[in-house]
Structure formats: C-alpha cells, structure tokens
Amino acid sequence: MTDAAAAPQSNTATAAPEMLSWDSKSRRVVMLYVPLACFLLILLFPFYWMTVTAFKPNAELYDYATHNPFWITSPTLDHIRHLLFNTSYPHWLWTTMLVSIAATFLSLLSSTLAAYAIQRLRFRGSQYVGLAIYLAYLVPPSILFIPLATMVVRLGLFDTPFALILTYPTFLVPFCTWLLIGYFKSIPYELEECALIDGASRLQILRQITLPLAIPGLISAGIFSFTLSWNEFIYALAFIQSSENKTVPVAILTELVTGDVYQWGALMAGSLLGSLPVAIFYSFFVDYYVSSLTGAVKE
C-alpha cells in the first residue's frame, strides 16, 4: 500500500526541471529523465503487479509456464466480485474509513492545540513537554501494544472500532504535533501580536489568523495521519477479533488466506481497492502537501 505514495512523489520530482537550468537537451535526458524513469519504475512496479494480479483469472495466475506473468490475456472481474459479495470486504472498508477519519480528526485537533501551546504560549517547561511528546513517538508500537491491550480490554473497548480510534493517536499525535510546531514557527509572530493589539483573544487568533495560514501544514498532517491509520497493522491485529470489525490490511491477510492457501487474486484485488482511497485523497491535496514540505507562509 506504500504504492500510493508514488503518485505525489513523482509529482514533486517532475517539478524540478523548471527550477534548474540545464544547458543541453541530451544532458537533461541523462541527468534527469533516465534516473527519474528508473525511480518511477521501481516505485510503480508493485502497484502494477497488484493491478495485473487482481484482474488475472486463476488459470493464468497459477501457470507461469504457459502464460506471461507480466501480462493478462483474458482479464476477469471474478476476484473483485468474490471480494465484494462473498466476503465482508465492504464492511472492512467502511470500518477502516471510519477509524482513519476519526483518528485523524482526533489527532489533528489535539496536535493543533498542543503545537500552538508549545510554540506560541511558551509556558513554563513547554520545551520539555515538546520533548516528552517526541519521546512518546520513539516507543515502537510493537512494544506499546501490550500495555495498550490491557487498557483497551479494561475499558471495554476490545473488538470495537473505538479501540483503534483511541489508540492510533498515540503515534499520530506526536507526529502531527511536531509537524505543526515547525509549521507554526514559520508564521511570523508579529501577526499574532498585531491581532492581540487589534483585540483578539487567543482562541480568536488561533482560529482567524494562525489556522488559516497553517492550512497547508494541517493538510499534510491530515494526509499523514490518514495514511498511517489506513495502513496500521499491529494494533488492528491485536485489538480486533471478529471478522466483521477488521480493517482492510488485517482482514485481507487473515480472512483471505485460508489455511496455507493464498487467494492471490482476491488478496491483490483487496489491496488495490484498499489503496485507492488513499491515492485519491493524496491527489486532491498534493499541491498543498508539497508546498508545506518545501516552503512556508509567504507574505
């Protein structure tokens, strides 16, 4: 599912020639387009493989001797049909969507407030709080899921979407907070001082001055959170038991592998459909996303 990242990255890269001045065309081809093509090939190949497999009939899929593995001779929608009508895939998709959106929203809300407080209010010990939030990010989920599991069970959230909605912020909040601290830093403090003199309260400043200027930062934090939630595996595996409530990444692996039989067609179709929302999401915001990583507020 990392394949979805290929789309925005290729866009970033193609923006480069306008900024550099290359003297000759041949040099440009060698220095730019050839490496770029290799890069794209490597990034997009898994995506291609996934797509091809998803539409391949089983006969072709399991017989490389008579069929070209890189191509489909008679494409079929069987796998997708199987996925949509014989499994709970639509429900998994819905759960994943719900969990990702809710976790993203929750994380953005708390990160915005935290980042603003740390960067702008400069309360006593604010830099230690910032550091502590960052340290929390360094604890790997593969360790953290054990204590979290206890909490989830005690709170009676086991096997519900809330188990995920409330645990994903443990890694999303530190990430978003740090991204937003950096972004807030790029907004001139004078604007807020000016608003303060103009009579705005802290919350009014945040809502009417800082946040509108931080939209690109908020969007990239949102994209990151959404993608990370969408792809999350360990917590989803540990905290959800019933087949109904699983998220896409876990479900396709646990439900579509029966015994030691991999239903490759359905697996790949599930991955393909599962990565589409993220890719679509990215494509809407790619401009903001790039600008927030490469530049800050202008005038």
């Binding site: 001139p188 004078e190 604007l191 001082e193 608003a195 202008k298």
Partner: peptide
C-alpha cells in the same frame, strides 16, 4: 501599532 514588516494578515 505599526510593525517594521507591517504584519498585514496575508489571507
């Protein structure tokens, strides 16, 4: 107050 770099709200 008028600031050195004007502090106009860009948006």
């Amino acid at each position: 107050m008028v600031f050195q770099n004007y502090a106009l709200y860009p948006h």
